[in-house]
């Protein structure tokens, strides 16, 4: 009788163990959801409108803008803008504060280009973006800010020629024109 009681007690203990284990349904096959931290950095440039790349990837953001959802780490950043050399730098994203990055293209001499002015015949006055340069063809302007510029050549008895030049960083652009004689002035 006593051994029977022991057997019953033993069975109850075993049963209780399996019961406790069997009812534990905290088993999940799905991965816990991951959420990004909203670490930010504000990037601006002069001039504005540069495309922001991080670790070689186009972010789709253009200066000035705030890049969000970044990892806390250092990134290789590049600003790309038409006519300008790429500007590369490193940014370190911190979790606690919004970093500000400002790139001033005008402060970097390598960003500038040059324009060589050539006309036929030579001796034409050179106007650059509407301002007389004090120079006559053939001549050149150094340290020209990249972008689209308007050139005018003026020479007596010739029709003034106005045209666009596209200046790129570290490149000398030729502004060339074949001036046409002004027949009305010659007749007069």
């Amino acid at each position: 009788m006593r051994s029977l009681k022991i057997k019953i007690a033993l069975l109850l203990i075993i049963f209780a163990f399996f019961f406790a284990a069997g009812c534990n349904d905290e088993i999940s096959s799905s991965k816990p959801e991951e959420f990004l931290e909203n670490n930010m950095i504000f990037v601006d440039s002069n001039p504005q409108g540069a495309h922001i790349f991080l670790d070689g990837r186009n972010t789709a953001f253009v200066t000035p803008d705030t890049l969000k959802w970044l990892d806390v780490k250092s990134y290789d950043a590049t600003l790309k803008m038409e006519y300008f050399r790429d500007t590369s730098f490193q940014i370190t994203v911190a979790s606690s504060n919004v970093n500000n990055i400002f790139i001033d293209y005008t402060m970097n001499l390598k960003m500038y280009g040059a324009v060589k002015f050539i006309s036929t015949p030579s001796g034409a006055d050179i106007y650059f973006d509407g301002i007389f340069t004090g120079k006559t063809t053939p001549d050149a302007l150094l340290h020209v800010f990249p972008g689209e510029h308007v050139v005018i050549f003026e020479l007596e008895n010739y029709i003034p020629d106005t045209f666009m030049v596209y200046v790129y960083s570290s490149i000398t652009t030729d502004a060339v024109s074949q001036l046409e004689q002004d027949s009305l002035k010659i007749l007069n």
Binding site: L4, K7, I8, L11, L12, F15, F18, F19, G22
Partner: peptide, 14 residues
């Protein structure tokens, strides 16, 4: 018999 009864009742309970 008691043992069988206990097992059946326990099984149902589980």
């Amino acid at each position: 018999k008691i043992l069988k009864l206990i097992i059946i009742v326990a099984g149902l309970f589980a």
